[in-house]
Design a protein around this nucleic acid. Structure first.
Lengths: 208, 208
DNA sequence: TTCCTCGGCTAACGTTGTTAGCTGCCAGTA
DNA sequence: TACTGGCAGCTAACAACGTTAGCCGAGGAA
């Protein structure tokens, strides 16, 4: 299983033309020194292997063979490290969902979007969980990144209300799956399909 | 605004007959001493007023005029206090959604369920957030309580996959609303209606 | 050579959950 | 009445957390 992550395999924007309503990825200034990159790399490794509780400044520093206070030469706070982690995760998820819009396929755009969204969120499970903690400093994310990452849901429905409903469905499915909230033995594929079909019909029938 | 909460206004099971597929509320042994009740009451007050970060053992103890270690005479850990808080919240939400199934109304059962779910989750916003933190000790909740609280979604759809999809939609809407993840000025009522309509059609049309 | 910045370090602070161990009170019982 | 036991408080303390202050060596620029 190869890690599917930003800095390790930098996500590049495909040079395809935009669909109606599709946003372009916002420019995010990447001026990472090698040490900063190593720090978020170590943080991600710990986060994915042992979960959010294990992500402490001392553990991150340990992995790099330095002391915790030295991390503050590179990041202003632990929150800033988390923001860097989530920024990469959002970029990767957004990249995947945007490109799912353009891939041809036998299934509907909604189904393709949902499949891509689920796959990427599960692949970045720990980061996704981190981003949905209420203590996460969402307001320090790069401007426009969240909007861009959510944009495919607008493209695929063509209606703001339906887009938010579809996004909520997808987000809810992912969160409940990652937190193990469905009873054991649940057929989650069937639940995803059922939701996809409901929203496909809602878009094809028109709003009112 | 009167607080809508368990111990303050104990939720009683209505003596109506059950709908097809509807579960009865599990018996949860309530052997609360007066002090334990005071503790979870103080905890809830802090949580609702100042959020999860303010919910510390010392703050809870302060409100009762005692020292933090004394709390351990009544609860084994902070997690246990959180579990008690969420147990009450789940009971109240479940009570409301179950009774929404039985209320007659001009709107569909799905719409009534969603309206009740949203209202109760927003009323218990802080507790709902607490319950969705990944660090929450879900496995220590009373057996069957979560299943019973989610049961109305099965009753109203009649299909496991569709029920999980509908629950995911509702959960996603609530979580994103509570975390302020929708752009300012979003018409959330419209999003709820759009989702409700999509699932109404999905149930009436049959599964495949 | 001198000076400044970068990126390490140690020591320490305040806060968190939690444990150990002491004590006073009060009910029950010989 | 006297003894006893447990309930429920207390203080002191610990380890781990994020974070700050302040020191210092290396290396490049003037």
């Amino acid at each position: 299983m190869t890690p599917l992550f930003g800095p390790r395999a930098p996500a590049t924007q495909l040079a395809t033309s935009l669909l109606p309503g599709e946003l372009r990825r916002p420019e995010v200034p990447v001026e990472k020194s090698s040490r900063t990159a190593e720090i978020i790399d170590a943080a991600r490794t710990i986060l994915e292997a042992e979960g959010a509780d294990a992500l402490t400044m001392r553990r991150i520093a340990d992995r790099l063979g330095i002391q915790a206070p030295s991390l503050y030469k590179h990041f202003a706070s632990k929150k800033a490290i988390e923001v860097a982690l989530v920024t990469d995760g959002l970029a990767e998820i957004g990249e995947a969902t945007h490109s799912a819009l353009h891939e041809p396929g036998s299934s509907s755009p909604i189904a393709r979007l949902l499949v891509a969204y689920r796959a990427l969120c599960v692949a970045n499970a720990a980061v996704y969980r981190l981003a949905t903690q209420s203590s996460f400093a969402r307001d320090e994310l790069p401007a426009g990144l969240e909007e861009w990452a959510g944009n495919p849901f607008y493209v695929v429905t063509g209606d703001p209300a339906l887009a938010q409903a579809l996004w909520s469905f997808a987000h809810g499915m992912v969160v409940l799956e990652l937190d193990g909230r469905y009873p054991a033995g649940s057929d989650l594929d069937a639940a995803w399909r059922a939701g996809a079909r409901a929203f496909e019909r809602a878009t094809s029938t028109g709003d009112l």
